Simulated scan of single mutants.
Amino acid sequence: MTRMITTFFYVGLLRPAPGTWGSAAAVVLGLVLHGLGSFPLLLVATALVTWLGFWAVGKELADRPTEDPSEIVIDEVAGQWIALLAPSFGFWMMGLDTWNFPYPGWVGAFLLFRLFDIWKPWLVGRADRRHDPVGVMLDDIWAGIFAGIGTMLLAGIAHGVLM
């Protein structure tokens, strides 16, 4: 069961770039979750997948605690959903129809998350250098937080300055 969770139903076995496949699958499912229950459902799902990720990664890497296998993508799912929470919250606060998740919001969250996950600046890199199961999850959580903030900053520029 931990293998299914850590690979996010085996999406992590796709090649090349399993992290990008995991993030893409997370965006698709995140958009569906937002459509079904808006921000509150996405928030609960994000908390659940993050908790499950910490548990499953810890179990999966118990015998090899310093590894970060590329097929483990539950961390990308958690981080990507954290990034999606920012625009989801904005749309929810505006009272938009739950199936209304305009493409710049999710595209920005996806691109910024991948940027921070690959680039690993500051706290993202520090978490990645832990070389333990917590670090596997934590670097993507930080990348998701930074991507969510960046997505909202870009939305503010696009809707405030450019309009």
Rank of each mutant, 00 (worst) to 15 (best):
L52S: 07
T20A: 05
A25L: 08
W119L: 08
D140A: 03
P18S: 13
L112V: 09
H34L: 12
A127R: 03
A143V: 05
L123Q: 10
L111P: 02
R15Y: 05
G58L: 10
R126E: 15
L48F: 07
V134S: 12
A45L: 06
L96D: 08
T46P: 04
V161N: 11
P121G: 15
T2V: 09
I118K: 05
L29P: 00
M94D: 14
G150F: 10
G22H: 01
D68P: 02
M1Y: 14
A47Q: 07
Y103R: 03
L96W: 13
G144Y: 04
V28Y: 13
L48Q: 06
G37E: 04
A26D: 08
A143K: 05
L48V: 10
H131R: 13
P102W: 11
D139M: 14
P18T: 15
M1W: 12
T98I: 02
I141R: 01
L153P: 10
A158P: 00
M4W: 14
H34C: 11
M152E: 15
L13W: 09
V107E: 03
A24C: 06
L43S: 10
N100Q: 09
L85P: 00
W55Q: 12
S38E: 08
G108M: 13
A155I: 02
Y103L: 15
V124Y: 14
T50A: 14
V49E: 00
F146W: 07
T66V: 14
A158R: 13
G35D: 13
R3G: 07
E71A: 06
G53P: 07
R15N: 09
P87F: 13
F110L: 10
D117C: 11
F39L: 11
T151P: 04
F110R: 01
G125V: 09
T151K: 00
T46D: 03
L52G: 03
A78S: 15
L43K: 02
L13D: 14
I82P: 10
A86R: 01
K120E: 12
F8T: 04
R15C: 05
W92N: 06
G95C: 04
L162H: 03
A147L: 06
